[in-house]
Nucleic acid binder design. Structure first.
Length: 422
RNA sequence: GUGGGCGUAGCUCAGCUGGUAGAGCACCCGGUUGUGGUCCGGGAUGUCGCGGGUUCGAGCCCCGUCGCUCACCCCA
């Protein structure tokens, strides 16, 4: 029980049966993105540290205290990626992906790293699925990105979640609001730490969970009320498009995102069954990011969805996660000669596309059948000397217990027919 | 970085005011010379997180330490 090595603190790990859910979730989230023409991009897990300090923003907690940063052997400062968008933008700029048809539509998945104190749904290594659509600023594209996330959650069977959206407007709107908000906050009685947080980004105070802060912020000026005409129209168009495709949302003018690059439409999916870390995904538009990183001045929009939290959410909703393993046939062989022959048979069936498992070694038949049951296989066969000489086997339906006689040579055919029936 | 809770079998946990370590599940074998799920019988499994202290005696009390966990800040 006291194993010599333990996984590093706060990492999420997946092993059977739960790992089946992990693969399934990633696959399911990917399909709506594929349906909308997004293409995969595979990127490094570590990047030049400056990519994040400049892209994500020095004032964010992510950059100022949560990055895994180290020096490589060449004396370069390297950081394990804490989020996905900055790396995607770097690759787009570096490889000139934005020189052709726009928008560039990409999706990615993989591990991300933040050196935080772990808690329920928060890990130091966690997994995200994300998409980015770069180079076009169209409210329909905003709605498309949000709808892709929404469809992913729905396909997984999730229901207890809410989509919060707001608009941070354009630079002009934000500047006006910031002035008003800062002068409002100056008049508040705040502790030193909170005040310094507000100095970095005054919007952060909207997101403070402490009730005394919330009540003080109750009458704070909302960015929503400072949107200029263009920003307002844009937000109306996004909402209209979402409604048109049946994506329900709640406008939440107090919503704040943790990364500094967001502008315009921002959104967050919140699940009700998760405890303190309830965000299962979020994203938004980023107007200045690409230029900040040395590329063209193109706008983009994207999201990141937390695979770990989605799996937790599915578990709290009682969505069955362990039944995602699928096996057509379990083969039990009795005796030396039968084991040799059945090994060949099993391989043939696998090559024909069936999912086939088998028993190994000499096992008691009862135990082997139990293993067949545990495997979740839909059918099982037993092969011994009798079957080899007669060429006929009993194909057993594990759910009903019924058996039918089939010839060894006709097994694949029969299996294929039975599969089609179910 | 700050605060709470918890470390006993593979898993979930019980263990009285200190007196020789338990249950359920899972696993293996058998009841049924070759057909799983239910039932019955049998079997294997523990540095009681680690180190020290108190005591005739510590899983239990005290100190330290490590780990896990939940929450705050923040976020997927």
């Amino acid at each position: 029980m006291s194993s010599q090595f333990q996984a590093p603190k706060g990492v999420s790990e997946y092993f059977p049966p739960r790992s089946n859910a992990f693969e399934y979730v990633v696959r399911t989230l990917t399909s709506p993105a594929l349906a909308a023409g997004y293409e995969p991009i595979e990127l490094p897990i570590f990047e030049d540290t400056e990519l994040f300090t400049r892209g994500v923003g020095e004032s964010t907690d992510v950059v100022s205290k949560e990055m895994y940063t180290f020096e490589d052997r060449g004396g370069r400062s390297i950081t394990l990626r804490p989020e996905g968008t900055a790396g995607v933008m770097r690759a787009v700029i570096e490889h000139n992906l934005d020189r052709g048809q726009l928008p560039v539509k990409l999706f990615y998945k993989g591990p991300f790293f933040r050196a935080e104190r772990p808690q329920a749904g928060r890990y130091r290594q966690f997994y995200q699925f994300g998409i980015e659509a770069i180079g076009v600023n169209d409210p329909q594209l905003d709605a498309e990105v949000i709808a892709i996330a929404y469809q992913g959650y729905k396909r997984l069977g999730l229901t207890n979640f809410t989509l919060h959206i707001t608009s941070l407007g354009d630079a002009e709107s934000r500047a006006k609001h910031r002035t008003a908000l800062v002068s409002f906050i100056e008049k508040l009685d705040l502790d030193e730490e909170t005040r310094s947080r507000a100095a970095k980004n005054p919007l952060r105070l909207f997101d403070d969970k402490r009730s005394e802060i919330q009540s003080k912020m109750h009458s704070a000026p909302l960015l929503m009320d400072f949107l200029n005409e263009a920003s307002k129209e844009n937000f109306v168009a996004v909402k209209k498009a979402l409604t048109a495709v049946g994506v329900p949302f709640e406008v939440n003018p107090r919503m704040v995102r943790g990364l500094d690059y967001y502008t315009g439409t921002t959104f967050e999916f919140v699940h009700s069954g998760l405890g303190a870390q309830s965000g299962i995904g979020g994203g938004g538009r980023y107007d200045g990011l690409m230029a900040t990183l040395g590329g063209q001045n193109l706008s983009g929009i994207g999201f990141g969805l937390g695979i770990d939290r989605i799996i937790l959410a599915m578990e709290t909703e009682g969505i069955s996660l362990t039944s995602m393993k699928y096996t057509d046939l379990y083969v039990v062989a009795l005796g030396e000669r039968a084991r040799e022959e059945s090994f060949v048979l099993v391989n043939q069936l696998r090559n024909q596309g069936f999912v086939v498992e088998q028993s190994y070694g000499e096992r008691a038949l009862k135990g082997a059948m139990k293993a067949a049951d545990k495997s979740g296989a839909r059918f099982a066969i037993v092969i011994g000397d009798a079957e080899l000489s007669s060429g006929s086997i009993e194909l057993k339906n594990m759910a009903t217990g019924e058996t039918v006689s089939v010839t060894l040579s006709g097994l694949a055919q029969t299996l294929a027919e039975k599969s089609r029936l179910l």
